[in-house]
Design a binder for these strands. Structure first.
Lengths: 284, 284
DNA sequence: CTGATCCATAACCACAGCGTATAGATCCGG
DNA sequence: CCGGATCTATACGCTGTGGTTATGGATCAG
């Protein structure tokens, strides 16, 4: 045995729950010796002591606390797996970055709930390049990135780009802007999106880049006048903040919104979701 | 064997990856017969056929696709568990509802990264009453709900409540509002927060309630004039939208922001996180 | 039709994991 | 300070699970 097994995790968690090996054994319906050995086996595989044993009670070590959290998560995940498979009740995980979904969320949930009551909808915030699809975090993703060849896709919308500026920025006086007017500024970019907006400028006249942690940070950097931002239109209505204004950028090409999903063995409900979403987006 | 085991999941996933039982067996370093039986065992436990077998190739059934997604997730989770335990590298999962964290996020991440480089920060959006703590989704949560007795807590901030109104609402003309002025309206409430703001009113004069799916939906219901909202101050700067204005409510008691965490066996890094967050909040 | 390929089944075997029993350690009450 | 109680670890057979090899049956290519 040099691999972690669920049996071991079940024992560990049960011991942590009950506080003693003996009670855990009763709960699990096996002998106390078995529980002891299973936990020791896990400790051997991981090379770390997980529980402080005194002959009176048991307490997890600091490593044990970590492992316990993961273990509980794993077991919950497995339970879900079993329940889904046995009941036929399934879920569709939809990944979406920032607010690519815009305000279609509510309508999508409503229609889906009535048309596909047996398939639970679950939204996942993903900010990776492939919208969490490659990492297996979702079954269907809504992204604005270039479409990866590995995935099937459908393009559902096209959004103009807007520049986010501090309200007291001189450029804020203009109704619309051009890329050229921004080339000497610093551009705030959300670190997790890894968006490549910089290549909109000619290579020799690009703004400096500054990476931010998340939307709040991004807005803060812009409101403070340190940076400007460049973002699709959906952001304009969704992420507002005092001291930040948005102006359309005339010569920036629009950015497409794509649905992407696995080519091989797509989720059974994918097709239905794609057609519904396409319909919602198309009626704008 | 009437329980799912990791061995079975490993076989299933490997067969799906390679496309044949034989290759999967080679990859796993066991015999083909073993793989066959493991997959069959899983199918027996779940009571569902997971793979369509032809003598030429193998394809997952629709149930198989579902189970595969979960199985991959479980295995990835287990890998993480092993890596964390063996390397000592850990993570701290911080749950936060809506934007309870406000604009401290960026500063928190920065300071944490320098002061605790060995503990990775991970943010989890949680909208349940206990901030995902009870469900094991995080190790530390930032919530605005009443504190559950089960958890240890620290109060870090207190926020005034604001009323969200459609811009053309008659009440929007006033600088401040009172609860009484809202009692005949419909109050939009985000379904997942389960917030109990309604009990601010006397029992016989409460607004009607309407539950919304998420923030976008919530804002939409208010912008359309169908509902009003009641929310802590942080929302005012974070979720803005054309057609929605915020007005302070004079006689609504402020709402506290709490950090909560497990009393028994807290995450080893909890204490450090609590003191850092307290410091950040206190300096406003 | 024949060979190749691939999954399921059968027969067998080793050892992993379980149970019972017991030793060792710690705590508690008197 | 000393038994008794309580709990974990170890010892030692035994059972059954999961492994192997061998083979059968089914399908496809040529």
């Amino acid at each position: 045995m040099d691999q972690v097994e669920l049996r071991q995790l079940r024992c560990l968690v049960e011991v942590a729950e009950t506080g003693t090996f003996t009670d855990a054994a009763i709960e699990l319906g096996v002998s106390q010796a078995a529980v002891s050995r299973n936990v020791m086996g896990l400790e051997r595989v991981l090379g770390v002591r997980l529980l402080h044993r005194t002959s009176r009670s048991v307490a997890p070590t600091s490593a044990g606390v970590q492992v316990l959290a993961r273990a509980r998560q794993v077991l919950a995940e497995v339970d879900e797996l079993v329940r889904e498979a046995t009941t036929g009740h399934t879920r569709l995980r939809v990944g979406h970055a920032w607010s690519a979904m815009g305000r279609h969320t509510a309508e999508f949930q409503r229609r889906w709930a009535t048309e596909h009551p047996d398939v639970e909808l679950q939204f996942v915030r993903t900010n990776t390049a492939t919208g969490g699809l490659a990492e297996g975090l979702c079954d269907l993703a809504i992204v604005r990135t270039q479409v990866d060849r590995r995935f099937a896709h459908a393009t559902v919308a096209s959004e103009r780009r807007y520049c986010a500026l501090a309200a007291d920025d001189p450029l804020a006086k203009k109704r619309t802007l051009t890329l050229d007017q921004l080339k000497d500024r610093t551009l705030a970019i959300d670190r997790r999106t890894g968006s490549t907006t910089a290549d909109l400028w000619p290579e020799d006249a690009r703004p400096r880049l500054e990476y931010t942690h998340d939307v709040d940070d991004w807005l803060a950097a812009i409101a403070g006048g340190r940076c400007v931002g460049l973002t699709p239109h959906a952001t304009v209505t969704q992420y507002r903040r005092d001291g930040v204004v948005y102006r359309p950028v005339r010569d920036a090409p629009p950015v497409d919104v794509h649905l992407i999903w696995h080519r091989r063995d797509p989720h059974p409900a994918t097709e239905a979701a794609v057609t519904l979403l396409t319909k919602l987006y198309s009626r704008h």
